[in-house]
Nucleic acid binder design. Sequence first.
DNA 1: GCCAACGTTGGC
DNA 2: GCCAACGTTGGC
Length: 150
Amino acid sequence: MAYWLMKSEPDVYGIDDLKRDRRECWDGVRNYQVRNMMRDDMRKGDLAFFYHSNCPEPGIVGVMRIVREAYPDHTQFDPQSKYYDPKSDPDDPRWLMVDVAYKRKLKRTITLAELKAHPELGDLPLVRRGNRLSVMPVTDADWEFILGLE
DNA sequence: GCCAACGTTGGC
DNA sequence: GCCAACGTTGGC
């Protein structure tokens, strides 16, 4: 089983929204590297950290489970959606999404600042300069280490 | 295929 | 709101 970290802006969709919905499709990924990881490496049963980005206190706020593997993201064909992609061919969809299910909230937010302060996490893409992936792999060791901070 | 211009992400 | 970093676009 693999581990992941997935970013979302809490103003758009936060951990409390997922807690309420229990399960949701992770739409709006429009980055090829992320799409390829979701398609090739993300499997049902994998666990992921829910990360709040672009907010007053960016950090890890919860844990969720991948419950459906990559399939076409319907928002790419919806002209009303901000994720609409007119260049995507319905017979060969360009963008994919997975479904996630709420597992739990962390007892507290493990902030980005805190993650950065631990040299043990130096290889975590999140804390590496210039990283902009909205979905990234987390090693077993980093997963355990981060949960240990809770 | 190069690369300048432009758009987006996301921390601060 | 600023801006660094990086991805994408499109002219050539």
